[in-house]
Amino acid sequence: MWRGLVRTVVILGGLGAATGWVLTQATPLDDTALAGIDADPANGETVFTAAGCASCHAAPDAEGEAKLVLAGGQRFASDFGTFIAPNVSPHPEAGIGGWTLAEFASAVTRGVSPEGQHYYPAFPYAAYLHMTEQDVADLWAYWQTLPQDATPSEPHEVGFPFNIRRAVGVWKQLYMTDDWVMASAETDQIARGRYLVEALAHCGECHTPRDALGGLDRDAWLAGAPNPSGRGTIPSLTPDDLTWGSTEIAYYLETGFTPDFDSAGGHMVAVIANFTKLPASDREAVAAYLKALP
């Protein structure tokens, strides 16, 4: 009898481990994914700006045109270690110039590298997974127009146990979902705002609190959080706390001025530098979305 029980436990344990192994696999998209999409690099530039790619992947302290050189090197401190943005310029060796569209889409929307490894979620693929296939293809088309840079990527400074990449697979099972936080968007404008806030601009990454495993607490969506890389607090954007009018929110995103003409600081400066380049209708859409939050 005991032998039977042990055998059952071993079999169940083996099954569990096998299931875990499968569940935590990094599965790239099929090679043919996104094939046949007619890509528009001009829209790709808008996606690039709204998604804030350069804000993290440009060299530290890059200004102006230099922000388009995605050499990497910016450091992002966190509770799990320090992540260092890699070179993602179109350089064939130092950057990602040798990738296919499907590999790029796997990286951006699934957090999976061409080698089949999980990226750390400091890269906001849990937001980008909402990106439309058209936008991913357009973004990749625009990417090809960016300057190449030969600076080698630096390894992340992440210690045990967070350096076990396989564990990121568990994290993905827990926190990656196709569902929008705002389940229904009442108008087209709010839907556009939802796409900008929840997907491209990944506002929740800083404005939503995280649990012990670093996953976003979707029940406290955009309700403010401790600054992930430093002191202070990232403010709440829910209507109870952010009482600015829609035009004031849009003006802030355009100029960085609050309604009482204080000015933005910290990482929000980079966010505003992006939003100011987007059409006014996009800034208004973000305001409409924030006003529609519960």
Partner: peptide, 21 residues
């Protein structure tokens, strides 16, 4: 012109001012 002044404010706050508590 407001944009230019705002740019100067943000450029400094970006590095030298901590977020509000």
């Amino acid at each position: 012109l407001m944009g230019q002044v705002g740019g100067a404010c943000k450029a400094c706050h970006d590095t030298h001012r901590a977020p509000a508590n």
